[in-house]
């Protein structure tokens, strides 16, 4: 009964969980591993997760903690930015997004997880701190470092000039 319910849950929630794992990991293969590890853990505690009533949130929490866990950080990995397919036709947007993904790929897992939890889930610092077993000040520091690193890698001056140029072009 428990296995059947878990299978049904996986079938229903897999698309969202897979995307969440991909966003957290930033790599396709790492995302598959992260998703599988999280599901293995969730299977072991499925009776408790089912009683909690929010299995999706529970699994996402497992994913976030697994992504920043010490054991996963010990694994040798090479940050490789993938050439994700562009979804819009604007050349500047494609360039910006590609640079952004490359910059995100260089972030440590903990900083990336803080950004994902903040900008995708909309969680505040206290919630992120509670979820990752860190202090809120630590979360703020991690976010600040992540944004500073992204700004440096994204060549903010060029972006700013591009934005100004775009603004000038739009202005009649």
């Amino acid at each position: 009964m428990t296995d059947t319910t878990f299978d049904e849950f996986v079938r229903q929630a897999l698309p969202g969980l897979a995307r969440y794992a991909y966003v957290l990991a930033g790599d396709r293969h790492a995302a598959e591993d992260l998703l599988q590890d999280s599901l293995v853990r969730a299977m072991g505690a499925w009776s408790r997760i089912r009683q909690d009533g929010n299995p999706v949130g529970y699994v996402k929490t497992i994913m976030a903690r697994t992504n920043v866990s010490w054991w996963r950080r010990r694994r040798p990995s090479v940050a490789v930015s993938e050439n994700l397919a562009a979804t819009d036709g604007a050349l500047d947007s494609v360039e910006h997004r590609d640079e952004l993904r490359r910059a995100l790929a260089t972030l440590p897992p903990l900083q990336r997880t803080v950004l994902v939890l903040g900008f995708l889930d909309g969680a505040d610092d206290e919630e992120i701190a509670s979820l990752l077993h860190r202090r809120p000040a630590t979360i703020r520091s991690l976010r600040h470092r992540a944004l500073r690193s992204l700004r440096r890698d994204l060549r903010i001056d060029e972006l700013r000039s591009l934005d100004r140029a775009a603004d000038l072009q739009e202005t009649p």
Partner: peptide
């Protein structure tokens, strides 16, 4: 601007992962 880019990237980015549910659950089991 950067925060907007990040939110858009995480929300609308091409992070679609094609995984077979049955295979995934069997492997997990």
């Amino acid at each position: 601007k950067l925060e907007e880019l990040l939110a858009t990237e995480f929300r609308d980015g091409p992070y679609e992962l094609l995984v077979d549910a049955d295979r995934l659950t069997a492997t997990a089991r």
